[in-house]
Design a protein around this nucleic acid. Structure first.
Length: 152
DNA sequence: GCCAACGTTGGC
DNA sequence: GCCAACGTTGGC
């Protein structure tokens, strides 16, 4: 069972939106970057995912969600009224992928970006590298454990 | 609001 | 295939 980290702006969809209805399944769509998309496609039912809050007041890893079902074509890419519309994509050959996520838990405390950067175990995590804009990335087991420990 | 770093586009 | 221009991301 693989582990991941995804970025989101809590104004759009943060851990509180998941926690508001723990049973609900929220589509993770709108990813329009090939590297991030390729990671989305590798996700599978039951995978666990850190939710990272970006571009906000309290930046950092806030909680955990889980992958529900299998990745599927992001429907927004076909919708001309969606901000995520991609005229170059077609239902016959979908370019972008979405997955469904469900709430698992909120961390006891937010692990701030500064804390993440100061942890030697996390040096290889794309998130902490300067200028990294990757919004979906794999997290290795030792990295996962390190972040959990920092949240205690 | 600023701006550095990045990915993508498009002309050549 | 190169690379300049552009739009976006995201921390500060």
């Amino acid at each position: 069972m693989a582990k991941w980290l995804v970025k989101s702006e809590p104004d759009e969809c943060g851990i509180d939106d998941f926690a508001a209805d723990p049973q609900s399944v929220i589509p993770w769509d709108g990813v329009r970057n090939y590297q991030a998309r390729n990671f989305l496609r590798q996700m599978a039912e039951g995978d666990e995912v850190f939710l990272y809050h970006s571009s906000c007041r309290h930046i950092g890893v806030a909680g955990i969600v889980t992958v529900v079902g299998a990745p599927y074509p992001d429907t927004a890419q076909f919708d001309p009224h969606s901000p995520y519309f991609d005229p170059k994509s077609s239902p016959e050959d979908p370019r972008w992928t979405a997955v469904d996520m469900r709430y698992v838990g909120t961390l006891p405390s937010l692990v701030s970006l500064a804390t993440l950067k100061s942890a030697p175990e996390l040096a290889d995590l794309p998130l902490v590298n300067k200028g990294s804009r990757l919004s979906v990335m794999p997290v290795r087991e030792p990295e996962w454990q390190a972040i959990l420990r920092l949240a205690e």
